[in-house]
Nucleic acid binder design. Structure first.
Lengths: 121, 121
DNA sequence: TATTTTCATCGTAAAATTACGATGAACGAT
DNA sequence: ATCGTTCATCGTAATTTTACGATGAAAATA
């Protein structure tokens, strides 16, 4: 059973038992959270929000990381759907992906509502 | 320069240059996001939200993971401040940590506002 | 006291993440 | 056509994460 098959199975049943794995929303939110699980990637999102869009070189210049490393972080953000990249001559213009941001907002809002104002034992 | 020194340095300056690292809020949000970066830990938070509190054994029973693995996930959630654990005889009662949840809500809300409604290049 | 239950920790293996230099491809400029 | 710039990718090393069986500590129970 590969990842796709497992995901599909989970989606079809919409239940979670001992032998099942996790729900689609849990999987997706964890993916998006993983994209935020490094300060450099958060810094990148903030830069793109401030400047609305940004060529790759500017991002590299502002981060304390090598160009190859920043490129790797950008790739992760793009793969998970939080940013987009558009080739502009020899440069690449990155910007926020509204759809991915909205998806993250929704999934987090859902979890946030569940965990709001709970009292401990 | 160890982690504490680096964090203190970053906090003192509150600026980010090529030779500096990341801002405290970026570091902290990435830590909290990392705690959400696994579907099992999200499932745990949801369980604790539903039942308000939960003994460790119930969590283990509902997750498709071994007891040792679940205990490790619980430890990570506790270390980052999202849950608390209280010893109750031979069992341990886990519950959400309101402070940690609130901190995550605040940090995410801040980032969310920045990235809201941006248009791509 | 001996036994059972509950859970954390240890040890360890496999996989993923992080980081960087080196290389190469694509493009504009000379 | 050649050169410099820009950026992705490759290869690789170090670290971290994930997972589980085995073990041990603590408490209730027999």
């Amino acid at each position: 059973m590969n990842d796709l098959e497992r995901k599909t199975f989970t989606q079809n049943t919409m239940t979670r038992t001992k032998n099942d794995l996790f729900l689609p929303d849990e999987m997706r939110l964890s993916e998006l959270a993983k994209a935020l699980a490094h300060p450099a990637r958060i810094a990148i999102l903030k830069m793109l929000a401030e400047k609305n869009s940004c060529i790759c070189g500017e991002i590299v210049d502002e981060l304390p990381l090598a160009q190859a490393t920043v490129s790797q972080h950008l790739k992760e953000l793009k793969n998970v759907g939080l940013i987009k990249g558009e080739i502009d001559g020899p440069k690449v213009c990155y910007c926020l992906n509204t759809d991915g941001i909205a998806e993250l907002r929704g999934l987090w809002a859902n979890l946030e509502q569940r965990v709001a104002a709970k009292i401990c034992c």
